[in-house]
Design a protein around this nucleic acid. Sequence first.
DNA 1: TGCATTTTTCTTGTCGACAAGAATCCGCGG
DNA 2: CCGCGGATTCTTGTCGACAAGAAAAATGCA
Lengths: 235, 235
Amino acid sequence: MTTDGGEGGLPERKRGSGVKVVYEMLRDEILNLKLAPGTHIDEVQLAERFGMSRTPIREALVRLAGEGLVETLPNRSAMVATIDVLNLHTFYDAITLMYRVTTRLAAQYHRPEDLVRIRAHQADYAAAVAAQDALAMIAINRELHAAIAEAGRNPYFTTLTLRLLNEGRRILRLYYQSFDDRLPQEYVDEHEAMIAAIAARDVALCDRIASAHADQIVRQIQKLFARDERQRVPL
Amino acid sequence: MTTDGGEGGLPERKRGSGVKVVYEMLRDEILNLKLAPGTHIDEVQLAERFGMSRTPIREALVRLAGEGLVETLPNRSAMVATIDVLNLHTFYDAITLMYRVTTRLAAQYHRPEDLVRIRAHQADYAAAVAAQDALAMIAINRELHAAIAEAGRNPYFTTLTLRLLNEGRRILRLYYQSFDDRLPQEYVDEHEAMIAAIAARDVALCDRIASAHADQIVRQIQKLFARDERQRVPL
DNA sequence: TGCATTTTTCTTGTCGACAAGAATCCGCGG
DNA sequence: CCGCGGATTCTTGTCGACAAGAAAAATGCA
């Protein structure tokens, strides 16, 4: 069986769009864990699936490797980047610092249209929480913080934050697919407070809220990995 | 005239090394401003120069684009990334924060072999200062701070720091090629103090020194751009 | 049977060629 | 003289094919 992804139609597509399509599709599948970490990626298989040559596939993979989403060894198959559980503390450090810095900068440099975008994401987030849709929450959480980072208008920090949000999305996704936990209403409130602080241009308050928010998420992830997965089977 | 770069010899090279060679060569030329910002990059020209097909050239360019060293528009020539003078403050913010964070982390997590590497770079730096070799100083300064970042063992911060150091190398290079200034002996002393603080694992001191060091560099760059380039011609 | 070695198959890295847009040049009209 | 439209050239994006290296399978030997 050839597991067609659903792209098998008219092969007419615009010049230059091929790479973009493959790149975005693969990125989403990696972030959704639809492609499990460690999965070996076969270029010809992807080429057949997307109905194009290996060349654009290759370029998409190189780009994804640049963002740390796939790992590649010479003359060997590329594979979906693994989630390094042992070095998670570096992730905690980085996401905490980036939450703080981008939120502070957003308080300083945001413009009215930024707040509109941010609040739109927050509305989506609240809706996802109400609908108990954990997957949507994870995706929207990323978009919300990305919008805050953009409002800070520092491309260096924005890029790193985006990368960390991607990583975080994979980790959270791991969390919510393993067991359907209560969905944290607190996040909605924390986001609300964060947005208010940004709108009020209160840098110090933003810093405090961002720190707390990051700590919250770190604790949640730690709770996941501390969880005992063994089934208690009567003997 | 075909401006051969000097690669025109036996075309035998190992499989998989092509991309690496092109990538590193182009990266160095961009960082040295041997390729001026804004220069259009012609793929076939590079292919002829390196004696290989366009495919590996292309992959190298995609990688460089991922690091922000070249900018690419669809169906248009890639070009060497421009130095955005108007948004330099974002660079200042980012490099200052990364200097602080990586130095602090180095104080916490460095191992003996890290100090050996760092001190070797520092010796090279001092030698370059003694030799009045500004170009070597610029390159070694990057390596020194890169080694400190590596000692901090947080790949997220290390990656961003490396990117900022690259950008800084281009800017400094711009500086020292415009006029041969006095070479700052102070940097040697500041580096020395920084290394001592790392070795002593004094996080707070590291933070202070890194801040001061970043401010120093920022001021130097600002002095460059504030400089009045007009020639005073008698009328 | 178990292990080392060789052969086969499979996947990637590189190449040359072709087609679609973009940039350039040329001719024409105002 | 200048601007505008079409033809031409030039550059990039994509393709199919081939070769080198790696993984897997098959073979031989103890």
